[in-house]
Amino acid sequence: MRIKEGFLLREVAGSYIVVATGALTKEFNGIIKLNETGSFLWKKLAENTDTQALAFALTAEYDVSEEDARKDVESFVSLLADAGILEK
């Protein structure tokens, strides 16, 4: 899975903001605000990946247990999937 082409992640005044660009603006308007972990996972999801790899990356980067990392990744990924942001 990966994030659909056309989303733009930018740090704006200390916040992580995602907006749609190009043809995607017809489907998504408004902004998505991410926290630091969210933006970390978002960047990883720009390339094709899976929940296992994401959880591993999270434990490597942050002081977090494997189980917590897996839970965080699963809930983040399911949020994105529900919003139609991911492609398989």
Partner: peptide, 27 residues
């Protein structure tokens, strides 16, 4: 503060569809 202003500001700003122009506008 900046965080609240940011969210309120976004609904009032014209954000270009073009990715480069959009990034410039966000900056």
């Amino acid at each position: 503060g900046a965080e609240e202003a940011l969210v309120r500001l976004f609904s009032q700003v014209y954000l270009p569809e073009d990715a480069v122009a959009s990034a410039e506008t966000l900056d």
